[in-house]
Design a protein around this nucleic acid. Structure first.
Length: 498
RNA sequence: GGCGACGUGGCCAAGUGGUAAGGCAGGGGCCUGCAAAGCCCUCAUCCCCGGUUCGAAUCCGGGCGUCGCCUCCA
């Protein structure tokens, strides 16, 4: 089965055929580090992290490159505001970005070049463009001549004449055409600058992606990603620069993620309606944030809110509870009879059905929402299986349930959603006191105390002494330990965290 | 004004020609000493109008509405 993906360049879903069999070269536009990334920025990085992980899971050898723009107008402006230097601003927010990505569970790119470390290559490409008469020097600036590149506008579906008439840009008199954009900017006083054949200056924003992708991935690499607001002009300009400089096609598949919205409006720093990723992660674990994002197709807009995060948390817990229950069941004593052959077969069919659907959905332009749906269907099948009768499970039943667990953990893992992680921080020491009080416990071991409490509760229940039984359950609940009665005995669960 | 995307149950969201996945929430029931977890039932004909077709949420035309890009933007 092949993977199909939607290519912005052709506006169609296409079969994915990497230039080199079994390997994928992809480039994703990274952040400009002038502020903390917000949850909208995070969505894009998450989207491409999932695509990357899935491709790897499908057996591709993925080279994943993401730049960090650490020199730019906005960084300079921010430095002026903070009374700091551009270098310092870039350093602080680069660190913050890397931390946030780590916390979100975004896998490290194969290469993560920074603009300020790629200056010589950018100068080199600019020289190539001047040489090929696609760029010209005015004063200390160098501009790309848009009209010199025939394919301009193909990605964004724009006509050069219309771009021009609709332009709201201030026309820079030094450009020979308003459409042209800067490859190299002469430094103004007090700005960071690097030496170049055209004097001291700094690179234009669009240039770095062309240069870095060529350096790390070569020409005509496989996938170029970014959010949809980068299609024009950023990606259009990248194509123009690279193809004009090399004479070769730039990237083969262009993938663009939908924007995150708040109250049906784009989340952006300029609108001020943003929420920082770090603040969201303070309140919700990374897998929950990821699950929320993955419940919507990556190309669609996604309206973000705390309520929706709560919903995602409930959905996450549904899967987590199942996994916990399966693991607990494995510790029970198997019987000979267990579930019927028919029930077991039904579960086995549900497992392979879920696996097949998961792959089919993901292969179809990374339909994570559909893929998650398939996993939730498996969750239901497993729950049904476990509660089909009161009798204990047979060894074969436990094996089938372990398969369910494996499929869920592995499939979610392919999407970078961690689940079922160890959660053993031990019982709080206070349970010893509770056990002394309610169960006549004499030791000082918390685990032993819990055992004593459960034993006391079991006795109380057979004696129909509900007050005593509930005292144990309520007492443990105060320490975040829940007690659930099942046909196979009491199942205790330690609440997450403290 | 130009280009593009979208409009599916209370909320969110898959599905893009064969009769509506999944999640969350609500109602009813089962299980339970009570609970928890879970299961079952229940809750849509897919913005509107017209057309193509044996058949359309799915294709075409028109309308209404929302969003994005056209300026830095993930």
């Amino acid at each position: 089965m092949t993977i199909r993906l939607y290519n912005t360049l052709t506006r169609r879903k296409e079969e994915f055929e990497p230039r080199e069999e079994g390997a994928v070269a992809m480039y994703v536009c990274g952040p400009t580090v002038y502020n903390h990334v917000h949850i909208g920025n995070a969505r894009t990085f998450l989207t491409f992290d999932v695509i990357r992980r899935y491709l790897e899971w499908r057996g591709f050898d993925v080279t994943y490159v993401q730049n960090i723009t650490d020199i730019d107008d906005k960084i300079i402006a921010r430095a002026a505001e903070e009374g700091s230097s551009a270098e310092e601003v870039a350093r602080v927010y680069t660190e913050a970005f890397l931390d946030a990505m780590r916390e979100l569970g975004v896998a490290k790119p194969t290469a993560q070049p920074r603009a300020t470390e790629t200056i010589p290559e950018m100068i080199e490409m600019t020289e190539r463009l001047i040489e090929r008469e696609h760029a010209y020097v005015v004063g200390g600036d160098v501009y790309f001549s848009v009209r010199s590149f025939a394919g301009y506008g193909r990605l964004s579906g724009r006509d050069i004449e219309e771009v021009r008439s609709g332009a709201r840009v201030d026309v820079d008199e030094r450009k020979s055409d308003p459409l042209d954009f800067a490859l190299w900017k002469a430094a103004k006083p007090g700005e960071p600058h690097w030496p170049s054949p055209w004097g001291e200056g700094r690179p234009g924003w669009h240039l770095e992606c062309s240069v870095m992708s060529e350096k790390e991935l070569g020409v005509s690499f496989d996938i170029h990603g970014g959010a949809s607001d980068l299609i024009f002009p950023h990606h259009e300009n990248e194509i123009a620069q690279s193809e004009a400089a090399t004479g070769q096609p730039f990237a083969r598949y262009w993938l663009h993620g939908g924007l995150l919205q708040v109250n049906a409006e784009k989340m952006s720093k300029s609108l001020g309606n943003f929420m920082l990723l770090r603040d969201v992660l303070d309140r919700y674990p990374a897998p929950v944030v990821r699950l929320l994002m993955l419940q919507t197709h990556y190309r669609s807009p996604l309206d973000f809110s705390l309520d929706r995060l709560d919903e995602a948390r409930a959905a996450y817990e549904r899967i987590e509870t199942l996994i916990r229950n399966i693991r607990w069941t494995r510790g029970t004593t198997p019987t000979m009879e267990g579930r019927s052959e028919e029930e077991r077969e039904r579960l086995t069919a549900a497992i392979s059905g879920a696996q097949d659907s998961f792959v089919a959905e993901m292969d179809d332009d990374f339909n994570t929402a559909g893929a998650l749906g398939a996993l939730f269907e498996l969750v239901r099948a497993a729950n049904t299986f476990m509660t089909a009768s009161d009798s204990a499970l047979a060894t074969a039943d436990l094996v089938a349930l372990s398969d369910v667990e494996d499929v869920l953990v592995e499939s979610l893992g392919a999407l970078g959603v961690e689940i079922g992680g160890a959660r053993q921080q031990g019982y709080p020491p206070e349970v010893v006191e509770l056990a002394r009080e309610l169960a006549g416990y004499r030791g000082d071991d918390p685990a032993g105390a819990v055992d004593a409490l459960l034993a006391a509760r079991a006795v109380a229940r057979t004696e129909r002494n509900w007050a005593a039984a509930d005292a144990v359950r309520d007492g443990l609940a105060r320490f975040g330990i829940s007690v659930e009665d099942t046909a196979q005995g009491a199942r205790i669960t330690l609440a997450p965290r403290s």
